[in-house]
Structure formats: structure tokens, C-alpha cells
Design a protein around this nucleic acid. Structure first.
Lengths: 342, 342
DNA sequence: ATGAAAGCGCTAACAA
DNA sequence: TTGTTAGCGCTTTCAT
């Protein structure tokens, strides 16, 4: 319980370093940045003086002058969903090589909060934005405004009508993989538990489910299209509704792993044996998908590639003037585990 | 595939708004911030002009002038560990009311990266830092330097010898709860699977295990003190080592839920029945602790309170000159599930 | 190789 | 209530 830091000791500036060495601030600036056209001797003196004085650069002043912050903003609907955390980690990693930092924001699935985050990032002059928009239509205004202010890349989900690149997974291919797998396992009827149709990927997953289940002769169970949100709780509730119905389908296909984990929990609690009585599938392959009871069959998104590609596109966008927009749908892979008898 | 955003259209500044309305930049600044001592008519005109011109403030310039960024930095060892994500979400939420934003960084359990993040946050002039330091000793230098530059609060873990506040859980009380529960269940021998003794909370958990197990007459199984890292993988590996030993203890106590989930996975794979053959406990109560096979008995950390308290301490620190340091160890609660026969 | 000087866009004294 | 003025700390011409 001793004293705290002296309140607001004025921070050391470049001027004091310059004064100490007896050179101009310009020289100090040059010496401390890429040491160009400065004599090695001076560089060394400056380094030492900076060290002695405890100088550390004021990034704000530098940013104002250079109109660059070496910072990228990222906005995701949730930071507690492991899928997005993996994506964030991938982006942060990809950024690291270029010495840039990530400014992470959560929109908490709220378009109003998302708009606020975007305004804030633009105000803070980040050099670019990576966003997974909350909502297919309600996010449009804010996202397209931001895209007009600075380079912006959409990942995973997207809003249409915005001039920006996009990288994500091929949702149609993912549902093809899942349903072909279920068909092979002899599934004739299935339910689909998803979020409300408020985002691009949700729509594509539902559409993919409908198309491929029809093609493979898998019928939609009565009351089997359940739309809620991407959460464990919704998975639990949706499964309760299915249990309350007249009969169970052969399989429950879920639009993400969180939903599927909730479904599995309710199955366990309700005495429904998976995979004996019911097959269950997820989507994303989050780390916990392998640990559930039973382990979850799912499709893996290539998160690392998605993240790397997003950063690459952002770099392009910074340079670019005119250039065609990219839309990259990367391929998912099927991961078979015990929840489908694998 | 249409045209992109026009490259670098110079952004609208306050001067252009001022010119449009026919007032000074100072008036525009005043009108746009807290509308103090500006005539309502002018405020309205300025608002409108700003709107028409698509003006959005340059936060960097503002920050330079005001020496405030309204931004708080947070550094955590991992953003894929749900415990830390919950903490982050709590801090972000607590900050929201005061209109500040969170700048989140992951140190990836690497002291060097952590030091870099801290330098970066200080350079970016965040108003304060919330950090859960990676390492009990290797983090000291960087953390105490940062604490000297600006207000800093440690959460969850801490390094000693740094003049900063700390909020976290009462690790000793947590181990008392866990071990008393195990003793009631008839446990006579236990193993402890933890991370290396590199952080304060790890040390306290190991110490708590030793003290309370001794007090309750629970013996440490031979080779039963297993130190690795906070991850599912390490949990798997540690359990494999226990399985390779001559005999199993009655219980495996884990220093966090990720480790415990890994332990459970190996038990399932190796035919060890939990809780019949072995009791397993975790620590943190992450959302996935309820979904494992079997559901995990653990202690819940009061994350929301920890986060709220951290933000409150930061606010204090900003105001404060001299003031005693706070060390708040909040109380955990036992959550009994099937992994101990609950 | 170095220095002088001019701002980046904004805000806060201080005047009026 | 409003304007004038002086910077915040840094980088970058343009000279020398």
C-alpha cells in the first residue's frame, strides 16, 4: 500500500531528446524512425538520450501528421462465440507481420451498436476495417458509409449493396457435405435449427439445406424449420420444441455449433440418445465441438485462410483505386464425429 | 463488380463546416461537442452543415489536443479462452456507459509480445490499461513501466512489485470449496493438473490445493502434481500420464475448465468412467463446462463483478494522486455437476 | 547530413 | 455568445 504513480508527470517529448543531444527535433525524428540519411553517430546518441530520458513516441501526434495509425479495426457480432474469436485471432496474427495492431469491437448482434462502433473506428482513423456485419439489411447504412470512408472488407457474413470485398465460407457446399453425409446414414427426415434469417450466411445455409435436402430426398420434419439465434440457449429451446412435437425427425441439422451443443444438451436431459435415436450436426467446428456428449459432427470453416485473405484484401484496398471487387467463398470440410454415428 | 470508393477523397474538416456556416472553427467545435455556450440557432446550422458535408470528426486531432483518447486498452493472455472473453465482454460493457471504447490485445501467453502490446498502447495514448499479466516475473518489467506511464489495473493474475490495483478471485477460497466438496464425496487421494507456476493465480491455486488437501486428509497421488499450461491439449496429455501410472487417484482437480475438459475427453476415450471411477473438477465455469461429458463440477468466478470493479478502479486511478492500492479478492461459488456425482 | 519552419485538425484560453 | 490565437507532438519539405 504505497504511493501511486506521480500524477501526470508530463511525458518526455522529442524536443527534450533533441535538446539533450543538441540537434533538431527533425533529426531526432529521422533517427528514431527508419534511420535514413542520419549519421550513425547521431543515431546512437539519440537512441541513448531517448533511453535515458525514458522517451516513448506519441503515436497520436505521429498519426495526425502522417494520416496513418497503423491500426486496423475489426467488428464482430460476438466475442464470446468461439468461431469469431478464432477469426479475430487469425486476423491479429496476419496483421502482426506488417506491424499493425488490431482494434477489436463487439457489436453484440446489435445494428445500432455496430453503427456506433463503425463511427468510432472511422473517427479514430483506423487504416482499414474488417467486419462481419450483424444484419443483412439493418447493417447496410453504417457499413456502406464506413466503406466509403476507408478500406473495408467483409468476412463471414456480408450485406449486399456495399462496395466492398468479402471472404467467407461456401455455405452451399457446406450444406451439401452435411446432407450428403446424412443421406448416406439413411436419414429421411430432418429439422433445421438456425438463427432468424437476418444475415447472409444464415440465408445461404437455409437455402442450401432446402436445396440439398430436396435433391437427396430428405423431407423437412413438420415444424422442423426453427429460427432463433446463434446461441446454446436457442439450441436447447429449439430441441425442447421438437421434443414437444408428435415425433422426432431422423436428424437435426444446426446452423452453427453453439446451437448444436444446446440441442445435444437437451437430448441428454430428455433421454434422447444421439446418434441412436437422432443424428445431430453443427457448423464451424469450434474447439468445443469435439468435447460434447457425444462429440459433434460438423463442417470446418477455414478460419485461418479466411483471416489471412481478409488482411490481404485490405492491403489491396489501401493501394487500390479502381479494381474489381472480390468475393471469395472458401471450401469447408466435413468433420465426422459420434453425433452422426461416425 | 463495380467501382470502388474513390481513393482518398480528402476528408471534410471542421474548417469547411465553419466556412459553410460562416462562423469560426471554434464555434463549430463547441457546437459539435457539448453545445455549451453556443446559441441554439447556430448549433442547428452547424449540425446541418456537418450533415450535408458528410463531416465526421478527426478523433486523432482531438486526442492530440485534449491529451485524452477516451480509449482503454486491455491485454489478456488469450482471446480464445472463454474465461478471458467473458472478462473482456464485462469490461467492454462497463466502459460503454462512460462512452469509452476498449482496445483489445492478446499477448498469446508471450511476455515479449505482451511488452510490445503495452508499448503500443502507451504510444497510442490510451487513457488506461486493464491487464491480466502473462507471467509472474517475466511480465514485471513491462507492466511496471506501463503502470508508471498511465493508470493501470491488473485483473485475474498479477505481478508483484508493481504499484497497481488488482481485482480477481479468491483462489484460496475456491480451492477450499472444491476440496471440501471432494472430501464430502469421500475422496482420499487427488491429483492436481495445472499450468506451470508462472502466474500468481496458478501459484495460489497450487498452494490452496496443498493446504486444503492436507487439512482435509486428502493425499497427493504419486506423480499427481502435473504442471503444463491452460489448454484442452494439456488436460488430455496430463490425463494420459495419469492413466499410464500404476493407479488412479480418487479425483483429478484442474486449475481451469479447459484443462478439465481435456481430462474428461481422455477419460472418455480411455474407458475411465466419470464420476464412477474418478471425480473431476474444473475452475472458472466457462459456458462449455455445462456441456461436457459428463457436465463439469467447477467454481464460478464472478467475472461481471471483476470487470466492473476493474473499470471502477481505473476511473479512480485516473483521478487519484495518492491513494492506497486496492487488492480485491472476490468470492467464488461452487457449481456442482455430474463430474463429481452431483 | 542537418536545421528551420510549416502545418496535420482540433480545442481551450483569452478577448471582445 | 463568438472569434482570435496559440499550440498539442510529430513529420516533412525545402534549404543549407
Amino acid at each position: 500500500m504505497r504511493r501511486r504513480r506521480e500524477a501526470a508527470v508530463a511525458r518526455v517529448t522529442i524536443r527534450e531528446v533533441a535538446a539533450r543531444v543538441g540537434v533538431s527535433t527533425a533529426t531526432v525524428s529521422r533517427a528514431l524512425s527508419g534511420a535514413k540519411r542520419v549519421s550513425p553517430a547521431v543515431v546512437e546518441q539519440v537512441r541513448q538520450a531517448a533511453e535515458e530520458l525514458g522517451y516513448s513516441a506519441n503515436g497520436i501526434a505521429s498519426a495526425l501528421r502522417r494520416s496513418r495509425t497503423d491500426t486496423v479495426g475489426m467488428v464482430v457480432p460476438s466475442i464470446t462465440n468461439p468461431f469469431f474469436t478464432s477469426l479475430v485471432e487469425g486476423v491479429e496474427h496476419a496483421l502482426q507481420d506488417s506491424g499493425r495492431q488490431l482494434f477489436l469491437c463487439s457489436s453484440r448482434s446489435d445494428p445500432a451498436l455496430e453503427a456506433q462502433r463503425l463511427r468510432s473506428l472511422v473517427a479514430r482513423q483506423v487504416d482499414g476495417i474488417v467486419i462481419s456485419p450483424v444484419h443483412g439489411t439493418e447493417s447496410t447504412g453504417a457499413v456502406s458509409w464506413a466503406a466509403g470512408e476507408l478500406p473495408l472488407v467483409q468476412v463471414d457474413r456480408y450485406v449486399t449493396g456495399v462496395e466492398s470485398d468479402w471472404v467467407g465460407v461456401d455455405d452451399d457446399a457446406a450444406l451439401r457435405l452435411l446432407l450428403e453425409h446424412l443421406a448416406e446414414r439413411g436419414v429421411r427426415t430432418a429439422a433445421f435449427v438456425s438463427s432468424e434469417l437476418t444475415s447472409s450466411s444464415t440465408e445461404l445455409r437455409v437455402a442450401g439445406f432446402q436445396e440439398h435436402s430436396a435433391r437427396l430426398g430428405i423431407g423437412l420434419a413438420p415444424g422442423g424449420m426453427l429460427l432463433g439465434e446463434y446461441s446454446i440457449e436457442w439450441g436447447r429451446e429449439a430441441m425442447q420444441r421438437l421434443l414437444a412435437g408428435p415425433s422426432l425427425p431422423d436428424a437435426v441439422t444446426c446452423a452453427d455449433d453453439l446451437i448444436a451443443l444446446g440441442v445435444l444438451q437437451t437430448c441428454a436431459a430428455g433421454g434422447v440418445r444421439v446418434p441412436d435415436d437422432l443424428l445431430v450436426t453443427g457448423f464451424d467446428d469450434i474447439p468445443f465441438a469435439a468435447l460434447s456428449d457425444p462429440p459433434l459432427t460438423t463442417v470446418r470453416q477455414p478460419q485461418v485462410e479466411i483471416a489471412a485473405e481478409a488482411v490481404r484484401l485490405l492491403a489491396d484496398a489501401e493501394r487500390a483505386g479502381e479494381r474489381p471487387l472480390s468475393r471469395l467463398a472458401l471450401q469447408p470440410s466435413l468433420v465426422v464425429r459420434a453425433s452422426t454415428g461416425g
